[in-house]
């Protein structure tokens, strides 16, 4: 039986069960952690022979399915903070636009590749190690906040800044009251980083929601998926329209696996403790960081590559 399926935009053929499996793994991570999974799936697709530009664009299309499935699952469970998600999304769109301009500027100076690679490794390394350390402490009954606070009992500098900012809003699902400026600003920051790094930004957004916005972990996952859904709808349409890079047959095969994976991930996530979720995500982030570091340090087998690859 021929299991290969032809991908008209990628211009190649791939085993359909391999795509189904890859989609399933990434969908599972998406449902479990609220990340899009592009940072993991795009390199995997490139490894199996999909042209880099098609891999990135089609990946966005399948993330639409996985995040729609995941958002629906979380919305049914009441773990999506739509108000927070919309503010982060608005900030993300503005930040993404600024980031694209910044990259354009860096490319003209010839420093873009260096900045992208170093930003990637530093971001992944610092986020991953911080989450890992914090979740380890959490598993042993402490938190970073408690350990760093010591004997000091007054409000922290961060809390004082939050209190003086205008446009306060109550986010009932997240059980926090914040100035609307904070999620707008943070969304913008992630948008800039996402544009620079060429990824959806879920693995940056999730730690920001946990540590800076102080949202509960289960609301973080659902809200992140909600935001990713709209980001990837925009990216898919723009990539199809402007660059003709979306391979629907590829995305369809991936999404069959990913929508199921996302549901399973969301169910597994409910059974795990917050610190267990955080420690797993931090390990994945650090594995990706180590892989990138190895790519940067090890001499490649082939010194030439097609445009659009990392």
């Amino acid at each position: 039986m021929n299991l290969g399926i032809y991908l008209p935009v990628a211009g190649t053929s791939v085993n359909m069960f391999l795509l189904f499996g890859l989609g399933g793994i990434v969908g599972f991570l998406s449902g479990l952690f609220g990340v899009g999974g592009g940072f993991l799936l795009t390199p995997l697709l490139i490894i199996i022979g999909i042209p880099p530009t098609v891999a990135a664009a089609s990946d966005s299309n399948q993330i639409v399915a996985a995040s729609a499935s995941g958002t629906y699952a979380h919305a049914r469970g009441g773990t999506v903070d739509f108000k927070m998600g919309i503010l982060l999304l608005i900030g993300g769109v503005i930040g993404g636009t600024l980031g694209v301009r910044l990259i354009h500027l860096l490319r003209s100076t010839g420093e873009a590749n260096f900045v992208i690679s170093v930003t990637y490794v530093i971001m992944l390394g610092s986020i991953g190690s911080y989450m890992f350390y914090d979740s380890l402490l959490g598993l042993f009954g402490k938190t970073l906040e408690k350990t760093s606070r010591g004997t000091h009992t007054g409000p922290s500098t961060y809390a004082r800044i939050l209190n003086v900012l205008p446009f306060k809003m109550e986010f009932t699902r997240s059980h926090v009251t914040l100035s609307a400026i904070i999620p707008l600003f943070l969304g913008g920051l992630v948008g800039i980083l996402s544009a620079i790094m060429g990824v959806g930004g879920g693995f940056i957004m999730v730690p920001i929601m946990i540590y800076i916005l102080r949202m509960p972990m289960h609301v973080v996952v659902g809200t992140s998926l909600f935001q990713i859904l709209f980001t990837c709808i925009n990216v898919t349409i723009m990539q199809a329209w402007m660059n003709h890079n979306v391979d629907f047959i590829l995305a369809l095969n991936l999404l069959f696996g990913s929508v199921i994976g996302a549901q399973v991930g969301a169910q597994v996530g409910k059974k795990l403790k917050t610190d267990q979720l955080k420690i797993l995500l931090s390990l994945i982030v650090m594995v990706v960081m180590v892989k990138m570091l190895v790519d940067l340090l090890a001499a490649p087998d082939i010194l030439l590559s097609y445009k659009g690859s990392h």
């Binding site: 499935s69 898919t236 402007m242 003709h244 979306v246 629907f248 995305a251 069959f256």
Partner: peptide
């Protein structure tokens, strides 16, 4: 291309929601 992009997104959303349901 624009129609193709919109259809791709719509099918992905329907597939995602259907699986969710």
């Amino acid at each position: 291309a624009l129609l193709y992009g919109c259809l791709s997104v719509m099918i992905a959303i329907v597939a995602g929601l259907l699986t969710g349901v």
